[in-house]
């Protein structure tokens, strides 16, 4: 059982594309500005207490406590994998409903889902598989939430400084 190098490199490229997509859309919709719900603010305060950065912590807390553009990217690639373009748009509707359940306006999630649907469909035209994008999105969220909250929150805060200038 050997993972061939071609599949691994496709997953790596997909991870970079997904990372750029969801970080860009989250920053455009001002997720690092403040905690959308009280749970997100609590997570941001704990991250700041552990030597992290406050604005990066707000973005990580918002990702945890409501489905935003990262969830939209994952569910859009799941939808394209299962049912093509209509699956991706169906996933956008589901992300919007999920955002309303979690008391969030839901613009970031829906926008990220629709844009990711067309990005993933475009990449499947040139030889990528949609399953590569599912694995790539899981790797991309791992680099933000799962490796080190100190470095990730500082990186997100630095991008936020450039965005809010």
């Amino acid at each position: 059982m050997i993972v061939d190098l071609m599949t691994l490199s496709r997953i790596g490229v997909a991870a970079i594309v997904c990372w750029i997509n969801f970080v860009l859309i989250d920053q455009i919709f001002k997720l690092p500005e403040k905690g959308g719900v009280s749970g997100a603010s609590a997570i941001a305060r704990e991250i700041e207490r552990g030597n992290g950065s406050l604005h990066g912590g707000y973005m990580m807390g918002n990702i945890v406590s409501s489905p935003d553009a990262s969830a939209g990217t994952l569910l859009a690639s799941c939808g394209v994998y299962a049912a093509g373009i209509p699956g991706g748009l169906f996933a956008a509707v589901l992300v919007y409903i999920g955002n309303r359940i979690c008391y969030d306006p839901g613009y970031a999630g829906t926008t990220g889902c629709i844009s990711a649907t067309f990005i993933v469909y475009g990449f499947t035209r040139i030889g990528f598989a949609a399953s590569d994008f599912i694995a790539g999105m899981v790797i991309a969220i791992l680099t933000i939430q799962g490796i080190s909250y100190i470095h990730a929150s500082r990186l997100l805060a630095r991008i936020w400084e450039v965005r809010s200038r």
């Binding site: 719900v37 009280s38 749970g39 997100a40 603010s41 609590a42 997570i43 807390g61 945890v64 406590s65 409501s66 489905p67 969830a71 994952l74 569910l75 799941c78 939808g79 299962a82 049912a83 699956g87 169906f90 996933a91 589901l94 992300v95 409903i97 999920g98 359940i101 979690c102």
Partner: peptide, 26 residues
């Protein structure tokens, strides 16, 4: 296609659970 609905339901439920735990803790 129904798996998309199931995955979205699981994901929304999981984030809702995290949200409830965090806001009760805070």
């Amino acid at each position: 296609p129904l798996a998309i609905l199931a995955a979205a339901a699981y994901f929304v439920g999981s984030t809702f659970e995290s949200n409830a735990i965090a806001s009760t803790w805070a």
